[in-house]
């Protein structure tokens, strides 16, 4: 059984078709990178998987269960799928620690005391222990993004979605955040990334999908897609990306 399976997913905003019949499978422990130009539909696809955007047609399966049935309560699904955003989206009125502890408390109904050692351990694991009680505006972009990852991990998700999480960072801070992703990969996290970091995708992805105009044009291992792309669109995109 696939961890995640998308079957002919269609998403429209008004007249604009953003995902145009996308088929995609993600296996357990796999890191899948979605690449493609801005507006190709990568971010929207991630938001559909997390049920932040309802889809017009097709199905999305998580562990074989159809999670795209209209009217399904999305909370239970979202609790299993963590998501990290381009602009961090930390809650500015809470400290890093409070950001991380909010959802496990509210959704899993655990007490502060029950969660304390676990959440503190997470901050330590990502070298943020000394920043735990700072507010987001006291942190650098790289630290904020790592806190956002910790916040998502605090829910113990089975899958993590990353939406261009390094695009808003200064170049010298990108490395820290990518290191976190490698760490998660080594621990066997199932991950789907929308990314413009071609070097990273090439080095770390188990599977790479190239999107154009809401369709997956080409997919394969990173070797296949980066070293021997078959489609002319992929070749043109990679030629520009690696120029």
């Amino acid at each position: 059984m696939h961890k995640i399976e998308l079957h002919k997913v269609v998403k429209r905003f008004g007249q604009n078709t953003v995902c145009d019949g996308v088929d995609l499978t993600v296996e357990k422990n796999q890191m899948v990178c979605l690449i493609g130009a801005s507006g190709a539909g990568k971010s929207t696809l991630l938001r559909c998987i997390n049920l932040l955007e309802p889809i017009e047609d097709g199905e999305i399966f998580l562990d074989g269960e159809d999670i795209s049935i209209p009217g399904l309560n999305p909370q239970r699904v979202r609790a299993k799928i963590g998501m990290v955003f381009q602009n961090f989206n930390l809650f500015p009125h809470m400290t890093a620690y409070e950001n991380a502890i909010l959802a496990p408390r509210r959704v899993h109904g655990l007490s502060k005391l029950q969660l304390q050692s676990e959440i503190e351990a997470l901050f330590e694991r990502f070298e943020l222990a000394d920043r735990m009680h700072n507010y987001p505006d006291q942190l650098s972009g790289g630290q904020q993004q790592r806190v956002a990852i910790v916040r998502a991990l605090a829910m113990k998700p089975e899958v993590m979605l990353f939406d261009e999480i390094t695009s808003a960072l200064d170049p010298q801070l990108v490395g820290d955040v990518l290191d976190v992703l490698l760490k998660l990969k080594s621990q066997g996290m199932t991950m789907v990334l929308a990314t413009h970091e071609m070097g990273f995708a090439r080095q770390a992805a188990d599977k790479v999908c190239f999107l154009k105009d809401g369709k997956i044009i080409e997919e394969g291992t990173s070797k296949q897609v980066f070293d021997a792309p078959k489609k002319s669109e992929t070749k043109a995109f990679l030629a520009r990306a690696f120029k």
């Binding site: 979202r78 989206n89 959704v107 998502a152 829910m155």
Partner: peptide, 15 residues
């Protein structure tokens, strides 16, 4: 985006 982030964590609309 604040709403989206909070929803993505599994919080209900009310929360």
């Amino acid at each position: 985006s604040q709403r989206a982030a909070a929803l993505s964590l599994g919080l209900s609309e009310r929360q």
